[in-house]
Design a protein around this nucleic acid. Sequence first.
DNA 1: GCAGTTATCGGACACGATGACTGATAATTT
DNA 2: AAATTATCAGTCATCGTGTCCGATAACTGC
Lengths: 205, 205
Amino acid sequence: MKEDRRIQRSRDALHQALVALVLEKGYEAVTIKDIVERANVGRSTFYAHYKSKEDLLTNGLAELRALLTAHQQAALAEEGDVGQRCLGFSLALFEHAQSFRDIYRVLVGERGSAIVMNRMRALLADLVSQDLAAIAPAANDGQIPRSALIQFVVGALMSVLAWWMDRKSRLSPAEVDTIFRRLTIPAIVAAFDGPISNIDSNAER
Amino acid sequence: MKEDRRIQRSRDALHQALVALVLEKGYEAVTIKDIVERANVGRSTFYAHYKSKEDLLTNGLAELRALLTAHQQAALAEEGDVGQRCLGFSLALFEHAQSFRDIYRVLVGERGSAIVMNRMRALLADLVSQDLAAIAPAANDGQIPRSALIQFVVGALMSVLAWWMDRKSRLSPAEVDTIFRRLTIPAIVAAFDGPISNIDSNAER
DNA sequence: GCAGTTATCGGACACGATGACTGATAATTT
DNA sequence: AAATTATCAGTCATCGTGTCCGATAACTGC
């Protein structure tokens, strides 16, 4: 027995309505009344499926998570030197972001909410954490706590992503990815290296 | 004629109540009723001073802005090589954050609000922008847009700050600052350098 | 197709937060 | 001491939330 078609239609409509409305007014300002009116479903129907506005959001994020982890696994499986495999999912992320620009602006951009962004942050932190674990399994980081490095990378990633989304820059996903990697990889390398006394003389290994 | 002492008392009480409540429940969950009850202030009094919850918040942020810009100006005025002047305000920021841990957890941490964090982000972006302008006045960045670099640094800074605040890590401001700089400075250097083909051979200048 | 299941609808309800308004009271300033 | 004015308590209309119900429609499995 498949899932009732009515259920799919309602859920889809609600998800789409949420995204559209958050882009217009911001997450906090969106009311459930707004959502059900935009989705053209009855009020009770909403509560039949989701407990609250946040519940609806959480549900929508599940798909994204699955998609990104799949991309990451694929990237990790491929061959290449550390500089290529490290953060291997970033290009896929930027490409995915371009395809679903609207959703991503809600996830990382100015119009997002603390709740949404925290969810996204946690999701990316998982990815980065696994990625770093695959690159440098041991924990002999050069005095820099692993968790700090993870948060650093996630923050940088979300910032670059938000920067790209909010401005109308015509950069391609590959170009943005290049920017991100050129900035981030040196930081990761520096984290794994020993102490650095000066900037001008870096990476003598 | 100075400002009425009753006004100061009311405003102070409201500010303190807001900070305390946000730390307990998160910004969104705090109601005006909560605030006036905690502050022991009449409901109408709140509306006599502030238009809304956000208005109260904005008012509180003004002081912080003044304090941080002052710190930055002082740091920029001092002498030293690029590695020292660059992001010279960061240590002051971390020290300030330790002194006002409660407030900063609202500003950058998990319990903060999108509104507050966006304000904080804009504030830091101004500081970083001026800082980078002082270091590298021209705009011949190595293919990396200046605005992207600014957002990158701000995101990294807020992430490290949030990481430090949210965990109970006993690190001193100086230690956190070292972590932040060791990660960020290489990224900035890489941004100003020419194209890099590989990670292992970077900074050949 | 038909019968049984079930999602949806729309209305009603209680509840809590908001923001504005009032007159009386108390504190402060000059 | 007198004039000013911030504060208080209370009231009011409005809005969003979350829940419940019966009636109606749509869907599924046979």
